[in-house]
Amino acid sequence: MNGVSLQGLRVFLAVVESGSVSGAGRALGISQPAVSGHLHSLEKRFGVALLDRDRPIAPTRAGEKLAGHARRVLAATRELEEEMVRQRAPGGTLAVGASTTPAETIVPGAVARLAAECPEVSPRVRVGDTEDTLAALLRREVEVALVGQEPEDARLEARFVEEDRLTAVVRTGDGKLPEVTVEELSRASFVLRERGSATRRAVERTLRAAGVEPKIAAEIGSNAAVAGAVAAGAGVGVLPERALPRSPGVEPLRVKGLGFTRPLVLVTERGRRLSPAASAFIEVCLNRDGR
């Protein structure tokens, strides 16, 4: 015995509501023979007359019962379809990893825009240095990571977000010269980020390329703490330019012929199928401010 089709129920209700086969056909955009075929199939399926063919056509007692069930079935079907659409849309908890600088400069705006565009997504942001963040990504503790260097691990792939410009900083009032040479800088003691930090690696790489082996006065685990130590006179620091407005007590130190830059990138596990929430987060990061 064949099952009942949803289209058959739609046709039956259209006949009941319009009172005619022709009216149902016009409402559904199908031919009268197609309408009659669906009605015949339903009556054959249930073994009872469902319609009184007098004009206007009216449901029999069995037809009234079927009409009530049909309305509930079709309403439930619409609800199911809407729920499946919601399931395709971004939603749920999203685990994001971020190293310190992008956590301070990119993540706040991205989270705000994500909340506006995808309110069903609830991001959980884990902040650490680049090394720890990429390790968490490989352990699948986070689904997407924002860090300050291209990953070397072939299991990971990166998308460029923006260039991050870094600048040497000294305690306010100590930058008496408008510009210092690399040789003068080489005599300074440095307050740098911890070894797992991409900022630290970018600074050391740039200094060593210029022939400077930095003397480390202190290693500190955040940009704000580096700025605080520099403001207290502990040495020369290197901070993202975008962090300077939030770093009282320090000022830029220009170094002739030397510039510090590194990329900020979005990293995902190569070949991993991303959730709609992760894809939405990546989209807002790559297209911030309409870019």
Rank of each mutant, 00 (worst) to 15 (best):
R72C: 02
G68W: 08
A58N: 04
H69L: 15
G68S: 12
R61T: 13
R86P: 07
S99D: 05
E82K: 13
G92H: 01
A95L: 02
E64L: 13
V96A: 00
P90C: 04
L94V: 04
S99R: 03
R78G: 10
L74K: 03
V73S: 00
L74R: 06
S99V: 06
A75S: 12
L74M: 02
E83R: 15
R71P: 06
R71D: 02
R72L: 15
A89K: 10
M84N: 04
L74G: 03
E79Q: 11
R86E: 13
R88A: 15
A70Y: 10
L66V: 03
R78S: 14
A62K: 07
G63M: 07
A62Q: 15
A76N: 09
E81K: 11
A67G: 07
A58V: 08
H69N: 04
R78T: 14
A67Q: 08
I57V: 15
G63V: 00
L74I: 00
I57A: 09
G91N: 10
A95R: 12
L94N: 04
A70E: 06
Q87I: 11
S99A: 14
V96M: 00
A67C: 07
H69E: 10
E83C: 06
G63I: 05
L80V: 09
H69F: 11
E64Q: 12
L80C: 07
M84S: 03
L94F: 08
G92P: 07
P59C: 08
V73Y: 03
A95K: 00
E64S: 10
A75D: 12
S99F: 01
R88F: 05
A58Y: 05
A98K: 05
P90V: 08
H69Y: 09
A76L: 15
A75N: 08
A76F: 02
A98Y: 06
T77R: 14
R61E: 13
E83A: 13
L94I: 03
E79R: 15
I57M: 11
Q87K: 14
